[in-house]
Amino acid sequence: MSTASYDKKTQAAHHFDSLEQQHEASKQGVWLFMATEIMMFGGLFVGYFIYRFMYHDMYIAGGDSLNWKLGALNTLVLLLSSFTMAQAVTETMKGENKKALKLIYITVACAFAFMVVKYFEYTAKIHHGMFPGFDLWKPDMAYIAEHLRSGFSIDNVDPANLRLFFVLYFVMTGLHGLHIIIGIGLMFWIIKRLKNDEFSPKYYTAVEGVGLYWHIVDIIWIFLFPLMYLI
């Protein structure tokens, strides 16, 4: 009674007046969910700012031990993926589903590239004993000292408190990475639906919704990159 099938490309669900209203409602729903994502990651940023304030030298040392060039590369990769995603939405709105499909493939490729870089970064850190859990915390302080910027002394860096930088590094970039993976999953879903010819200029809500999600993931990285790698 409630899940009778209907042609989604031309008809709205029974409780909506029109496809237009349904589209606007769905989009607003996605925006609200994006607000929740901002608040959830936001909590971690609060933790970062507080511990940075309390253990300033440790955060400088931790940040300097990360490879900022890889971080910058990942930033560019994500920005490119945001561009291809945005353009994919544009193409779907114009009915150019084949172009949209190609752009989403590129977006997925960028996402995979990001995760590959992350993999190398993580394994390097673990190799240097900087994973803050499971009794794996044996930081290579010589490595830290080597990368520490001038004006700061390694003597001020307490390994125990340094751990609090890496806790936030792994949790924040890890959770972000999880969201990238979820994004890849969502994009596979969109690819399947695009191939199935399920979208038209009048009905493309899911593509736009996934696009909004992907841009939020990008925005989170925009803040993560300088906080973790640069300053």
Partner: peptide
């Protein structure tokens, strides 16, 4: 969502031993 991340951090603290709230490490 803030509750969500709080509880998640607590689960990480317990399962991975990350120590974000552990005073021994300087956690608050």
């Amino acid at each position: 969502p803030v509750l969500g991340i709080t509880l998640l951090l607590l689960v990480f603290e317990r399962t991975f031993g990350i120590g974000i709230f552990d005073p021994v490490l300087g956690g608050d």
